[in-house]
């Protein structure tokens, strides 16, 4: 399908689903984690998102929403693409194309797990640490403009995925599987991780430099604490609790040294 066709498709499909309908679906997906629960995970959120287009996609009194109440679990930033893809498949089914309800369910189940893993890797493993590291750097130097810019940039990416994902998934349909099968995602992930590692390195340098500026003993103590913390993290020990324990300990050590 060429670019022009795809744009026409998004503007008005065979079931009369327009841009505004997809925007309403995307809007309802923004707070999708509110309905997260152990039994169906994001199943209720999935059905809730489809509500604005349900009347356009139903035939023979068959409730679209009840068919989409099954288990669904994905990264919330990538889930909108699946919802868009499902709307497209449901629309194809309505238009008489050979798409059975079982095919739609197969599409949902087969793509949700890989996208969940990819989304977690990209957002929780790379993009969020990168944004928070940048924010910490700006906060250390008390740059309020930098803090706001980081927040805006991060939200631009997240909202593009959440709102734009529905359009993208709708335009792609089955092709969504091919998009994520290629090397493009790995390349993108590699780039974001490299930037994250570079910014992370800058923050580590700032921390070490501040220790060194304070005193040599502080540098030694800070480096030792960081090394110990890496070991503790590998053993799954909470650094938050370590920090709480260190509070009275540092007071006792200072008292003993004076």
């Amino acid at each position: 399908m060429d670019r022009v066709d795809r744009h026409e498709r998004v503007a008005r499909g065979p079931a009369g689903i327009g841009r505004l309908d997809l925007l309403r679906v995307g809007w309802r997906l923004l707070p999708m984690q509110a309905l997260l629960h152990a039994r169906g995970m994001q199943s209720l959120a999935f059905a809730r998102a489809l509500a604005p287009v349900a009347h356009k996609l139903e035939q023979d009194g068959n409730s679209l929403l009840s068919r989409h109440l099954g288990f669904f679990n994905c990264n919330p930033n990538f889930a909108p693409m699946i919802v868009g893809g499902v709307i497209r498949l449901e629309e194809d089914r309505l238009a008489g194309r050979p798409v059975a309800p079982a095919d739609v369910e197969y599409f949902k189940r087969s793509i949700s797990s890989p996208l969940a893993a990819m989304g977690d890797l990209l957002f929780l493993g790379a993009l969020k640490p990168l944004a928070l590291t940048l924010a910490c750097l700006f906060a250390i130097y008390q740059s309020f403009i930098g803090l706001v810019a980081t927040w805006l940039l991060y939200n631009l990416v997240v909202l593009s995925c959440r709102l734009g994902g529905v359009y993208f998934g709708y335009a792609k349909g089955w092709e969504l599987v091919d998009v994520f099968s290629g090397p493009a995602f790995q390349r993108l992930l590699g780039i974001v991780q490299s930037i994250g590692a570079s910014v992370g390195g800058a923050l580590v340098a700032v921390v070490l430099f501040r220790f060194a500026r304070d005193s040599t003993s502080m540098l030694g103590l800070g480096a030792a604490l960081a090394a110990a913390a890496v070991v503790l993290l590998r053993k799954d020990i909470s650094l938050s609790r370590v920090a709480i324990l260190l509070f009275p300990l540092s007071a006792v050590v200072t008292l003993l040294l004076m």
Partner: peptide, 8 residues
């Protein structure tokens, strides 16, 4: 130092 460890 704990943040640096987390980033590392």
């Amino acid at each position: 130092a704990l943040g640096a460890a987390a980033l590392w």
